[in-house]
């Protein structure tokens, strides 16, 4: 599994490790989306929603938070699950990602958590000898 679940009394968190930021950001995205639903291997015609994300922040921690918030917003406001990502550029202060997704269907798709938000509580992103480690708690 590219991420580990962190226990919390009321909410739920993810612990992420990546050799580089691309791996970490990718795993974070998969982790978040997997808290919401079981990602479906969808047919090509269903996987037709495409969106570019272009974000910048003062550092990699804030950038990770903004990236996860974007994905959460797309689901909450538009019902879109973005499950495939191509990172065109990812530096510590900016990212450019092309993402593909599908419209969530509450009748067909697995319903897991209604993630309300990405919180600052216990949030961390640090460089390690193997690459990067992050912890993030979501309000459920």
């Amino acid at each position: 599994m590219p991420y580990k679940i962190l226990e919390h009394t009321a909410d739920i968190g993810l612990s992420l490790e990546g050799k580089n930021l691309v791996e970490l950001f990718q795993d974070g995205a998969i982790g978040l989306v997997s808290l919401i639903t079981e990602i479906r291997p969808v047919a090509v015609e269903r996987k037709r929603i495409k969106k570019s994300f272009d974000l910048s922040a003062e550092g990699p921690g804030r950038l990770l938070m903004l990236w996860l918030r974007e994905l959460l917003f797309e689901f909450s406001a538009h019902g879109v699950i973005f499950s495939d990502y191509q990172f065109h550029d990812l530096r510590e202060t900016a990212l450019k990602v092309q993402a593909w997704g599908y419209r969530f269907d509450p009748k067909q798709d697995v319903q897991r958590y209604e993630v309300k938000a990405v919180t600052y509580h216990g949030f961390k992103l640090e460089s390690k000898n193997f690459g990067w480690h992050a912890e993030v708690l979501f309000d459920i």
Partner: peptide, 9 residues
Amino acid sequence: IHWGYGFPI
């Protein structure tokens, strides 16, 4: 009371 984020619940 239980563990929340920031404030306790």
